[in-house]
Design a binder for these strands. Structure first.
Length: 375
DNA sequence: AATGCATCCAACCGCGCTGCT
DNA sequence: GAGCAGCGCGGTTGGATGCAT
């Protein structure tokens, strides 16, 4: 049996809210307070679903909402928090007074992810090897001459929040696909894109590491599935200076070793929620393991489909070394680059990746992490 | 001026969690 | 413990909008 609907669908008004409805809802909540959303519409005389009322209040009518564009400072906070918490929009929004989760989510989807996407698509900004990795999909049609559409929110007229009568115009042509889009499609459904070590390499890895007594627990099950991956679910930025040290081949600055994992564990970008070792621990071990190091430095076959909707952070990192204008040179977002390039504090990260990310954080830990991220 | 299309964002939807009975 | 209701969250949708042609 399916889940019961949250409210009666019959007689429920949907779509955009009118000024009158807003007025009724605001007045009711001001006199009766928030909560009891299910019964609110009936009590207030609104022909709306309770959930719809709640959403309207939270996302638009609340008096403490901040209006206007997301500022660069806020953007930086969003990126930083998203890198750690993933798509936990409500959590991110809770650290941006006056902003709602919906707003942050929309902003991320429409602005930030696009900025990153555009960045990796710039042919001139990508080294050959990385470009090969990213653009491993078949060639797509050449880019359009222009990019129609709105260019900035600030250029827009104040938006109207109430229904307008305008005829819908459905587009019939499919969206233009870029190589990256094709590549993204190619990996749709892939849960993890990662480099896996063969059995012999794993044995070398464990042998060498254990001799030094450096390695983490040798779990036989784990041994069959040793992975080096940067996980990233839905755009989780997962970055660590250790990763760069390991992945960058200094003898060939143009080469970056690339691998990804798309992990279930959104909040767990440095460790592995499934019980595998923390990433830094793996790296420490692997870095000093000759066979693995050579494995890493060789032109090992990398999964053909290497991009997900999230970003090739290796590329981003590497590029940042050569070009500080990570986003858009006109927008002066150097701070973003500097943050991406900032080395992690070993005292806090190198040592505690597993501790920090292996389990869900409680509220205090979360706040501490946020404070650290934003510091 | 009309049209096509990309972009934006408010609103919807379904699922999971929590608390109550 | 099971069942239910209420709520919150994240993903998705579709209409509104602006720009280029």
């Amino acid at each position: 049996m399916g889940r019961a609907p949250c409210c009666e669908k019959v007689g429920i008004k949907r779509g955009r809210w009118t000024a009158e409805e807003d007025q009724i809802l605001s007045s009711y909540i001001q006199s009766n307070g928030e909560g009891s959303w299910r019964s609110l519409p009936k009590n207030a005389g609104l022909k709306r679903c309770g959930k719809s009322c709640r959403l309207r209040w939270i996302n638009y009518l609340r008096s403490d909402l901040k209006r206007g564009n997301i500022t660069p400072e806020e953007e930086e906070i969003v990126v930083k928090l998203h890198s750690t918490f993933g798509n936990r929009w409500s959590l991110i929004a809770s650290h941006l007074p006056g902003r709602t989760d919906n707003e942050i989510k929309n902003y991320w989807n429409s602005h930030l992810s696009r900025k990153l996407h555009n960045f990796i698509r710039k042919p001139s900004s990508i080294s050959h090897d990385v470009a090969v990795v990213i653009m491993s999909a078949p060639p797509a049609s050449p880019p359009a001459k222009r990019r129609p559409g709105r260019t900035s929110r600030s250029a827009m007229k104040p938006k109207t929040h109430y229904p307008k009568t305008r005829k819908s115009k459905k587009t019939s042509a499919p969206p233009t696909e870029t190589n990256a889009d094709v590549a993204v499609k190619a990996v749709a459904g892939e849960e993890a894109l990662m480099m896996e070590l063969s059995g012999a390499e794993i044995d070398d890895y464990y042998g060498a590491c254990h001799e030094r007594g450096e390695c983490c627990n040798n779990n036989n099950n784990d041994k069959n599935n040793l992975m080096i991956s940067i996980d990233g679910d839905n755009g989780v930025l997962s970055f660590d200076e250790d990763i760069a040290d390991l992945l960058l081949d200094e003898s060939d600055p143009g080469h970056v070793f690339t691998s990804f994992g798309g992990d279930h564990a959104k909040s767990n970008h440095l460790g592995d929620s499934d019980g595998a070792r923390g990433f830094s621990e793996n790296l420490d071990c692997l870095q000093s393991c000759p066979s693995v190091e050579s494995f890493l430095n060789c032109e090992h076959q990398v999964n053909d489909a290497l991009t997900d909707e999230f970003i090739d952070w290796d590329c981003v990192w590497q590029q940042g070394h050569h070009n500080k204008n990570l986003w858009d040179e006109n927008e002066g977002s150097d701070s973003m680059v500097s943050w991406l390039l900032d080395g992690d504090d070993e005292a806090t990260i190198g040592k505690s990746n597993c501790e920090n990310f292996g389990e869900p954080l409680d509220h205090d830990e979360e706040n501490a992490l946020v404070a650290w991220l934003l510091s």
